[in-house]
Amino acid sequence: MREPISIWCFSGVLLFIYGLLIFASGLWELAHPLLHPPVLHQLHAPIWWGAILTVIGLWYLIEFWPHKRASQPKE
């Protein structure tokens, strides 16, 4: 039996997936520049923002992943 999944684990899943998607999209833009890039596109915000979200998400996933319940000590 595992512990119930906490809200922080769900948050980790979401941030991790979003971080990866945004990071990958930033890398894609490097190879395929946008026709109408946003202001300050030269800062490559999707790459570093995506990386930050990925790291935070991964940290939450590891920290709050539901562990196996410890077996009940015998009386």
Partner: peptide, 12 residues
């Protein structure tokens, strides 16, 4: 949002 965010960030 549109001014600073491209694909991916805009979806977020």
């Amino acid at each position: 949002l549109v001014r600073y965010c491209g694909p991916g960030l805009l979806g977020l």
